[in-house]
């Protein structure tokens, strides 16, 4: 499964180098949930984008099963990415959005079966022919999640996917995510600002600051978990204490930056 060695990313902004990620060593155990927390601009999203192949590292390497991937594009076919916004294609129905990554790769019948299955699991069957602009925020987030899951990815990357949702919808989707993970067993990398969400979902919580991983919190509390469990409360406190202790955001948002150059 993915691991990083000395991974770094520097962006060039207005003639100066801005380090978004520095010297990250990381092993993501197969079928685990790793959650990254930290202040805005600490490098969480950059790490996710590097893992997805949307950015190229300026130093270090990303390994798959201990080896460097020979064909990045081929590797990406097994990666699912759930963005902060659902990013649905407005011209496609819910069903076709969900099957988007499979079109041209699998026979139509198989795509239809897979899409119907995942829509059923996500409770979206009734909305299969709806357009994205006819969906609520929660529904659209589910469609984004379904699209990432339908190709049965080995690696599922989620970038604050529930941040814009109300507390109840967020809680429901968190439970659905855990249920899907237990059923399909992808390796999940989840980025969030919400410490409670991190404690509820993670096998391991990583705290990031200024582009580096500064703390690691293993979490072996059995599932299903509740926010009021003593272990979850203690873990939340520990993470929050760490975050409050030192929070020096670099104010780097990868989506607004130019392509990186070696530092």
């Amino acid at each position: 499964m993915p691991s990083c060695r000395g991974l770094g990313k520097t962006f060039r902004i207005d003639g100066r180098n801005v380090v978004a990620l520095r010297d990250v060593d990381l092993d993501l155990p197969r079928a685990s949930i790793s959650v990254f927390v930290g202040p805005s601009g600490c490098g969480k999203t950059t790490l996710l984008r590097l893992l997805a192949g949307l950015e190229q590292p300026t130093s270090g390497v990303i390994l798959r099963d201990g080896a460097e991937p020979s064909q990045a594009a081929a590797e990406r076919t097994r990666v699912g990415y759930v963005f902060q916004e659902p990013r649905l294609m407005p011209w496609l129905s819910v069903a076709r959005n969900v099957g988007f990554n499979l079109e041209g790769r699998l026979p139509k019948v198989e795509i239809a079966t897979r899409v119907a299955d995942i829509l059923s699991i996500m409770g979206l069957t009734t909305f299969a022919s709806a357009r994205p602009d006819q969906l609520s925020g929660g529904m659209a987030s589910r469609v984004g999640l379904a699209r990432a899951l339908v190709s049965n990815p080995d690696l599922l990357l989620l970038d604050e996917p529930f941040a814009a949702l109300d507390a109840m919808t967020r809680r429901r989707l968190q439970a659905e995510l855990v249920a899907l993970w237990q059923r399909l067993s992808p390796t999940i990398v989840f980025v969030t600002h919400d410490v409670e969400e991190a404690a509820l979902l993670a096998d391991t919580v990583y705290r990031m600051e200024s582009g580096a991983i500064v703390a690691r919190y293993p979490n072996s509390i059995p599932r299903p978990r509740d926010a009021t469990d003593a272990g979850i409360v203690a873990l939340r406190r520990a993470i929050l204490a760490g975050l409050e202790e030192k929070a020096e955001p670099t104010s780097v948002q990868p989506s607004t930056l130019k392509r990186g150059t070696a530092s």
Partner: peptide, 27 residues
């Protein structure tokens, strides 16, 4: 650009991204 990234993560070729994302988006 964010829709194009959806295609990139899906491993689509540049031609496929043009036909399946860019052109419909330009409609």
């Amino acid at each position: 650009r964010r829709l194009i990234e959806v295609g990139q993560v899906a491993g689509l070729s540049k031609g496929a991204i043009l036909c399946r994302i860019v052109m419909p988006s330009a409609l």
